[in-house]
């Protein structure tokens, strides 16, 4: 009998956990005071992190499932045409798959770099799609730039933790097959 392989499910659940944590953080960052500034509002966007593990350490089939489902999950909560996030994440994932033979995929440093660039691409792509609705796009870009800086800083700090979490979750579920990674390239 064929055994159920839960790797995609574990990585997807980890992505959802991060999505929930980012949403909760955004809830509290919608209005806060900081030092002498009475009104601050920051929005963290961390979708770039969703592609790192599937692209660098998971097989193609599992990776695509994770990316499609994560994209649809995020799209369901955002006021964008349904499927936008899925296609954007898919584009980043496909690009990373294309070059991953040449990437140093072990260790968190390269993961951090990939997450930062992926997030940068996603924010810029989403901004070009949405910023047209704003009455003053120039001011909107300033806000997006501030949010992007904060998001990149958070990604820089949490990527090693998040990759380790996914590794640990796979190990706990006994779904980690180190040899399998090379076979699925």
């Amino acid at each position: 009998m064929r055994r159920f392989d839960p790797r995609w499910l574990i990585v997807l659940l980890a992505n959802l956990l991060l999505w929930w944590l980012a949403g909760t953080a955004n809830h509290y960052l919608s209005h806060f005071s900081f030092l002498w500034i009475d009104y601050c509002s920051i929005h963290l966007y961390v979708s770039g992190l969703f592609v790192v593990y599937p692209a660098l350490r998971l097989g193609r089939k599992h990776g695509w499932i994770v990316i499609i489902l994560t994209g649809l999950m995020t799209d369901a909560l955002e006021p964008v045409p349904f499927g936008t996030g899925m296609i954007l994440l898919g584009a980043v994932y496909a690009t990373l798959l294309y070059g991953r033979r040449r990437f140093p995929r072990e260790g968190p440093v390269f993961g951090v770099i990939v997450a930062l660039f992926a997030n940068l691409f996603l924010v810029i792509a989403l901004s070009f799609l949405l910023v047209g609705a704003n009455p003053r796009p120039g001011e909107a870009w300033f806000r997006i730039f501030t949010d992007l800086l904060a998001s990149q800083l958070v990604i820089f700090l949490i990527t090693p933790w998040f990759l380790a979490l996914q590794e640990a979750a796979l190990r706990l579920a006994r779904a980690h097959f180190p040899g399998d990674r090379q076979l699925t390239l």
């Binding site: 193609r60 695509w64 649809l72 799209d75 369901a76 349904f82 899925m86 296609i87 994932y93 690009t95």
Partner: peptide
């Protein structure tokens, strides 16, 4: 092949019925 897969997913998504998309969105929410 990754880009071919992405192209197939995109084509399938574009031709997918609006009813299915709406149902999927509501379900995922």
């Amino acid at each position: 092949r990754p880009f071919l897969t992405l192209g197939i997913i995109l084509a399938l998504w574009l031709f997918l019925s609006l009813v299915v998309k709406t149902f999927t969105r509501v379900t995922f929410f």
